[in-house]
Amino acid sequence: TSSHKLRLYERDDYRGLMSELTDDCACVPELFRLPEIYSLHVLEGCWVLYEMPNYRGRQYLLRPGDYRRYHDWGGADAKVGSLRRVTDL
């Protein structure tokens, strides 16, 4: 099985509160109590970021690497509604 891990930060450049995720999350704002995510670091696996909860809205593919600001993943703003692991490519 492949492993997945990413870290979410409330501010750009990996500042502020950090939360780690290793499984799908249908509602990021509810789980982490963060209305917006300004940076993230994908440590393992690929993920799909959705701008709205319950895997809706615009989708962004996140490969392992650094995303210091939301425009690094192509986002128009810092809204992160849900995240899902990519298990098949």
Rank of each mutant, 00 (worst) to 15 (best):
S2G: 09
C25R: 01
V86W: 09
P64S: 04
G65V: 01
T22L: 07
D12K: 13
R15E: 13
D23N: 11
R84A: 09
M52I: 00
K5I: 08
S82G: 02
L8V: 09
R85E: 05
C27D: 15
F32Q: 10
G81Y: 01
D24I: 10
L34G: 13
R15H: 11
G74M: 03
P64K: 09
Y55R: 02
L40C: 11
D77W: 05
S19M: 12
D88A: 05
W47G: 04
R63V: 12
S2P: 05
S3R: 05
G75W: 01
H4E: 04
L40F: 07
Q59M: 08
D24E: 02
V28E: 04
R56C: 07
C46E: 14
R7G: 03
S19R: 13
Y14T: 08
D66R: 12
G45I: 03
C46A: 13
D72N: 07
Y70I: 10
L89K: 08
I37P: 10
V80N: 09
V42Q: 03
D88C: 04
I37N: 13
Y60S: 07
R56Y: 09
R69C: 15
V48I: 15
Y38C: 13
S19I: 15
S2H: 09
L62G: 07
G16W: 05
L31P: 03
E20C: 02
C46S: 15
S39L: 03
V28A: 05
I37D: 15
T87V: 09
V86Y: 01
H71Q: 13
G65D: 01
G65H: 04
L62H: 01
D72E: 09
H41S: 10
L40V: 15
R69D: 15
R33V: 10
M18L: 11
P64Y: 02
S39T: 03
L8Y: 03
M18Y: 13
E20I: 03
A78W: 08
D88K: 15
G57Q: 05
H41K: 13
Y38F: 15
H41A: 10
R58F: 15
Y38M: 15
C25E: 03
L62R: 00
L61Q: 15
Y70W: 10
Y70L: 06
